[in-house]
Amino acid sequence: MATYRSPHIQVVAEAPRTPLVPNGVMGMLIFVFTELMLFGGFLSAFIIIRSGAVVWPPPGQPALPFEQTAFNTALLLLSGVMLFVTRRRFDRDRASARTPMWIAMGLAAAFVVLQGREWVALLSQGLTLTSSSLGSFFFMVIGLHAIHVMVALGLLARSHWRLRRGWLASSQLGTTEVFWYFVVGVWPVVWLVMYQ
């Protein structure tokens, strides 16, 4: 039960209406809708630039490592599955949800580290933010996604902390879930559009 505390209103009773979707989850769903359009904007801009180019990748620029990144993609997708397991366990027995939550966080953190290593490798091959439109888009979009993964990690860490204290409400986990599934779900699309 999420209530906000106001020093001026004595909160005594719940409002008579029980919402179909909890407030937090609904707010996050709307936010994710905007995020989808944000990634959609970046990716469609990339597609337009790429379809207008005569040679791709631009001369002197390395091709992006599509196969290598497949492993990272698998890690991230697996973390999404682990969060699903977390939810199932949370509904039955809260304490048992902590292990899959840890695994989900570990997998996502591994994804960020491996992507970071890939960045370093590509930088050494001459792909930088300013070297070409490929470099500009690559670091912009992948960097944006990496920030999203880190924010999602923060949200999940907070949920975990609340779970350990016994404060985690179902709707709070639901809010984190929506964002996590978005971050996991948008990645394969980014990967297929950008790397291929």
Partner: peptide, 20 residues
């Protein structure tokens, strides 16, 4: 969303020499 994407790209073009 697309405008924020564009605005970020514009800021990068202005300040960091990207080529969007």
């Amino acid at each position: 969303g697309p405008l924020v994407a564009g605005a970020v790209m514009l800021i990068f073009d202005q300040n960091f020499g990207t080529a969007f």
